[in-house]
Design a protein around this nucleic acid. Structure first.
Lengths: 346, 346
DNA sequence: TTGAAAGCGCTAACAG
DNA sequence: CTGTTAGCGCTTTCAA
């Protein structure tokens, strides 16, 4: 019985069939070295390879070249609708270039991130695209010192010079605040994402800044941090927000750190008999799938996630080929999508 | 520039440090062969390995053993909320067992499925878990003949003996129809999923059967097939359904092939001024994330997707170790989740 | 219990 | 243009 995996013709099989040396077959089949081979031989080799259904063994090749043609993509949670589009965008570009992608989940746990990273490095990935970064991420800061390209996407690491592709968090939050300000809101709350994530921090900072910009004051009791980017954490923060305010001090609008937080806010508002947008306007962030189907359809900031992934992959490719040595930082434009959850205050 | 160890210590480095032969180090480090080595030597080797931060090179190992410790998971679309939980469930089990997962998208295209499959086989994956099967899937039928374990999840292939893990489509649809029948509905429509997918076919068949079971007649004009499992296709079918019926012949309830179709149905009903559930009750299928946040919250059939993935992975593991040679078919129980989209007919 | 040696399939110098 | 050669890092006989 053949061991699992003992299959397929080898270079030598092809060589024998054509009557040449394996080295020649290798050259004939490799586009880069094909020029050094007699066109006639090339043709014969290609035909034989086809006939024998020859497929190069990437392990043998990798052992020799110490490249695996594999890129690892690390996401905090593949079941969070945010990340699959990023993965898909990256994968499309990488696959096109002949790379295969390994995908790893960290479950938002920095220790699991280390494990996944180790596993990927152990698998000899040629590069790493990481969407799970936390602001104080020693693991990544250290990984960036290695000799393996690392590209961050969606989230950044504090004080590390790592190539990066993000959505324009400052611009997005400014759009959200401007939209609410233009509707006439003045008491605007912010349910911020976790402050140990760059997106949470950047959006919170942008919230304050934009408020000032539009001549509005930030009431500290209207700015709360959610423990995570989840519906539950959003609901908890929203509940705390409404508990802490009375009719006079309550916000007329809420800018949420992401869409899940906005959904949690919807839930709490419903429980408390508050209507959206009549009593309180709500703005989300990300425009994840199906938020246009909520009641009311969620006004939110659309982040071009597939593009983020694709751009990160392109940077990776350039890093891999040595074309690019600079530490690029790309901030992609986002877009305000106005739906039914925002209206002028009453 | 390069931190010491970044280049990775080899077995020989460890051997040199301990003063033994590389073969001995290999045996000492491999749990299976560790018994043949002097415990003292084992300890010394392990210490040296740790000191040198030795990590076995999977390519070298794979070249020798012709196993890659890699399993490919193929899904039709990673951005469809259905599939990430399956992937996550499978990945958890496989990672635990020391395997790494490759994830591939087919974009619901049977040609891309072949490409991804080829790519994975070229990458020497030890086994394949496929969630993208179509009923007439020559590619998979052929792949099943190979010497590489193949496990199907969520969808099946007609007339092929391939191990399989699915949700209980017949049982789920029966629950949906029973629920509607018990509410008093008699004119029940079915917006079926694509009939070239096993889930679409199984649920449609179960719909008819359950209707008979509950003494209801199936009006052919109330059973329509959606071109795909998408919101758009669902909306198109729902529109056709309402176009083709008048006040007397219109359904009072609709059992949908999946949740996306139900969402499309919601959209069309809203456009036409039909209220849910007052005018028409709607039942979805899958219980994908956030359908409890729709207006009204969607009554649906919950499929335990993470479990499907986990079970498929367990079968794969057994196939890989040769423990299991039988072609297991596992049908996992599903559950009716009653929410706000169903009510007695008026 | 350990060492020696032979490759796994491929690439890349180096000859010819 | 093509053959030869020497490994990449590891496992696994076979001896000792």
């Amino acid at each position: 019985m053949r061991p699992p995996g003992a299959r397929g013709a080898t270079l030598k099989d092809v060589a024998d069939r054509v009557g040449v040396h394996p080295g020649t077959v290798s050259r004939a089949l490799n586009p880069a070295t094909q020029g050094m081979v007699n066109p006639d031989t090339v043709r014969k080799v290609q035909r034989a390879a086809k006939e024998l259904a020859y497929r190069p063994n990437p392990m043998a090749r990798g052992l020799k070249t110490s490249r695996s043609m594999t890129v690892g993509i690390i996401v905090p949670d593949i079941t969070n609708p945010l990340f699959p589009p990023i993965v898909k965008g990256a994968e499309a570009v990488l696959t096109e270039a002949g790379y295969t992608c390994l995908i790893g989940n960290t479950d938002n746990d920095i220790h699991r991130e280390r494990d996944v990273l180790e596993a990927f490095i152990g698998r000899q990935v040629d590069g790493l695209i990481v969407a799970s970064a936390q602001l104080e991420d020693e693991v990544l800061r250290h990984a960036a010192d290695g000799d393996r390209p690392l590209v961050l996407v969606n989230r950044r690491v504090e004080g590390a010079r790592i190539p990066l592709v993000v959505g324009d968090d400052a611009g997005g939050m400014e759009m959200a605040v401007r939209h609410l300000a233009e509707l006439g809101h003045t008491r605007i709350a912010h349910l911020a994402g976790p402050q140990f994530l760059s997106t949470g921090r950047a959006r919170a900072r942008a919230f304050r800044q934009s408020m000032h910009e539009f001549g509005l004051t930030v009431d500290p009791s209207l700015v709360l941090e959610c423990a995570t980017y989840s519906v539950e954490a959003g609901a908890a923060a929203a509940a705390a927000l409404f508990e802490a305010t009375d009719a006079a001090s309550a916000p007329t609008a809420i800018a949420c750190g992401n869409d899940q937080i906005a959904i949690g806010t919807y839930d709490v508002m419903r429980e408390r008999g508050l209507r959206c947008p009549e009593d309180v306007s709500v703005v989300g962030y990300n425009d994840m799938p199906y938020v246009d189907k909520l009641a009311p359809p969620l006004t939110t900031i659309r982040v071009p996630h597939p593009l983020l992934g694709a751009e990160a992959a392109r940077i990776m490719l350039r890093l891999l080929t040595g074309e690019d040595t600079a530490t690029s930082v790309i901030s992609l434009p986002v877009e305000l999508v106005v739906r039914g959850s925002t209206a002028p205050p009453r």
